[in-house]
């Protein structure tokens, strides 16, 4: 593996982890808004109990991605920074408001309702904007204006390809988060909440798959180069769709925990993560060597080799230091029955 490949793989790994964590984060915010008036089901509580300790850690990942991008591929930074000024700024503003009000809502219970709406609505808009970075890297929306690259926003906003990605981002966010919350409430023995989130996942799963097909359809027309290269990874894509059906079946199998219930949400979650992993691998691999088509490749944007070596060493040390912290964190909030099953959160 070349240095460039190692670097882009690390970044891709970060993006994948962030995508899963952020999906949970944003989706949970949305669900707690939707079920805010469902006193009986505790569906909101479940979402909040998950959300409270994790948003800070999730937020670090977005900074980690930006830093990794700048430090490994400074040559891509210039172009990306220039064309993403407007969408990036809007994402930042929404993220700032959302994270701040998430904390405020937790501290001041009386305003919780209004604040829940803020985090719920932004929870849908932010993923839609974040994913727009992908079609922008496909190249068709970047043009030269007076010698400097610029984003053609009107073209972006009239492109079916962009809307396919937006639709995919929103439906995936809601699908993944309802599935994960179904699993979380299953662990917590909150059967009513489990039923609701399982139903939501069953509705949203097919929608997100349709959106993925819509992406491929529009890609064929708008980013032919990428479409053709992705077809080289057809087995990965087929595998991905198969995992989707595995998850679907898992949700209808009889529950191992409660006799009267249906579904094995843990199995479904694992299958869906594999589904997204396979699909995003195919997408990422086909995207190479371009970071931004056709101007920046991973070779042309790469950092100085000396800097890469130092960064790589720091990654190893950093991982060794952080890993026990992550394990401890996981055990306290995802495994510890005292936390997961508590009667009232906070």
């Amino acid at each position: 593996m070349t240095n460039e490949l190692i670097a882009i793989t690390l970044i891709w790994g970060f993006i994948f982890i962030y995508a899963v964590m952020a999906t949970m984060d944003f989706g949970a915010g949305f669900w707690s808004m939707v079920y805010i008036n469902q006193e009986k089901t505790k569906a909101t509580n479940i979402a909040n109990r998950y959300l409270s300790p994790t948003w800070e850690v999730t937020n670090v990942f977005i900074v980690a991605i930006v830093v990794a991008l700048v430090s490994f591929f400074p040559g891509a930074t210039f172009l990306l920074g220039t064309v993403l000024l407007v969408p990036g700024s809007i994402i930042l503003l929404l993220l700032a408001i959302r994270s701040a009000f998430l904390v405020f809502a937790h501290i001041t219970k009386e305003y919780e309702k209004a604040l829940t709406y803020i985090s719920g609505i932004t929870g849908i808009i932010i993923p839609a904007l974040l994913i727009s970075v992908l079609p922008i890297t496909h190249g068709e929306f970047i043009e030269m204006k007076n010698g400097t690259p610029a984003l053609n926003i009107s073209r972006l906003l009239t492109s079916p390809h962009e809307y396919a990605f937006i639709g995919f981002a929103i439906s995936s966010t809601l699908f993944l988060s309802s599935l994960l919350l179904a699993d979380y409430s299953n662990v917590a023995d909150e059967n009513d909440a489990y039923r609701i989130y399982r139903r939501d996942a069953l509705i949203l799963g097919p929608i997100s798959l349709l959106m993925a097909l819509f992406i491929m359809l529009t890609m064929q027309r708008e980013a032919t180069w990428l479409y053709e290269k992705m077809m080289n990874y057809l087995p990965w894509l087929i595998g991905s769709v198969l995992m989707f059906f595995v998850a679907g079946i898992a949700l209808f199998l009889p529950s191992t925990k409660h006799k009267e219930m249906r579904g094995r949400p843990r199995l479904a979650v694992v299958a869906i993560v594999i589904q997204y992993f396979l699909a995003s691998y195919a997408y990422g691999k086909a995207h190479l060597p371009y970071m931004i088509y056709p101007d920046v490749t991973i070779q042309s944007g790469f950092t100085h080799p000396n800097t890469f070596r130092a960064l790589f060493a720091s990654y190893i040390v950093g991982f060794l230091i952080l890993f026990p912290g992550f394990v401890y964190f996981w055990r306290l909030f995802m495994k510890d029955q005292r936390y997961v099953r508590q009667k009232n959160e906070g």
């Binding site: 990794a68 930074t77 210039f78 920074g81 950092t303 100085h304 800097t307 960064l311 720091s314």
Partner: peptide, 14 residues
């Protein structure tokens, strides 16, 4: 940031 990325990205990373 292009210069920082090439030369001074360690502190950001750490």
């Amino acid at each position: 940031m292009e210069v920082i990325g090439k030369v001074m990205s360690l502190p950001f990373q750490i």
